Amino acid sequence: MPDFDVVSLPETDHVDEGDTAPDFARPLVDEEYWEDRALDEVVDGPTLLLFHPMDGAFQATYLYNTVDDHGWAEDLDVLALSISTPYAHKRLLSERGDGIRAFSDPGADVVEEYGLAHDVDGMTGITETRPAVFLLDSDRTVEFAWVASEHPEFPDAEAIDGAVERLVD
């Protein structure tokens, strides 16, 4: 029995399959440095865009481990986004982010625009993202979308594998 409650998240009008992923500009972090970049500037082929709670949350660790386990960063660009700072992203990427770059969105503006925001229980004024996975083609069209409907919830990695295979083959 888990030592936490599974909580249903309210319905949301999020970015979905067939939509064009909204463009945004935020600090994009890799293991060495960061700079402001627009999503449109960095999507030039199949791209997996992962939204995860704050760095250090077990959902973030799970998503990064899943990327490694399935080798997605070998086949396409993998970008992450959370409300964590560039400094926190640098630490996370040095520990477990092989081939991943992460956008920093501390104000949760991008999270809101994608329809993924929810308030963190017990943390007044803190909004974070529900976990989500979007597979984008080179025009930022969403070819696959998964958005958590409860907390915690994790994506079906095999479904992502299938979507990646269809897009890169």
Rank of each mutant, 00 (worst) to 15 (best):
M1L: 12
P2G: 06
D3Q: 12
F4W: 14
F4P: 06
P10I: 01
T12V: 12
H14F: 04
E17P: 05
D19H: 13
D19I: 05
T20I: 14
F24C: 09
R26A: 13
L28M: 10
V29Y: 06
W34L: 04
W34Q: 13
D36Y: 11
R37Y: 01
L39M: 09
L39R: 06
L39Y: 02
E41N: 10
V42P: 05
D44Y: 01
G45M: 04
L49M: 15
L50C: 05
L50S: 08
F51Y: 04
D55P: 02
D55G: 11
F58H: 12
Q59D: 04
A60G: 13
T61F: 05
Y62R: 12
Y64Q: 14
N65M: 10
T66E: 15
V67D: 10
H70Y: 11
W72R: 07
D75H: 08
D77H: 12
L79E: 04
L81G: 02
L81W: 01
S82G: 08
S84D: 05
S84P: 02
Y87P: 00
A88P: 01
R91E: 11
L92W: 12
L92G: 07
L92E: 14
E95Q: 13
R96K: 15
R96P: 08
I100G: 03
I100S: 01
A102E: 06
F103R: 13
D105Y: 09
D105E: 09
D105I: 08
P106E: 11
G107L: 13
A108C: 13
D109C: 07
D109H: 11
E113V: 11
A117T: 07
A117P: 00
A117F: 00
D119I: 02
D121C: 04
M123R: 14
M123T: 10
G125P: 06
E128T: 15
E128D: 12
R130P: 08
P131L: 04
D137K: 05
D139W: 00
T141K: 11
V142C: 00
E143F: 03
E143K: 12
A145M: 03
V147W: 07
V147S: 09
A148E: 03
A148V: 06
E150H: 06
H151T: 08
H151M: 10
P152C: 03
P152F: 00
F154V: 09
P155S: 03
D156F: 03
E158V: 10
A159M: 04
E165N: 13
R166E: 15
R166V: 12
R166I: 01
L167P: 05
D169R: 14
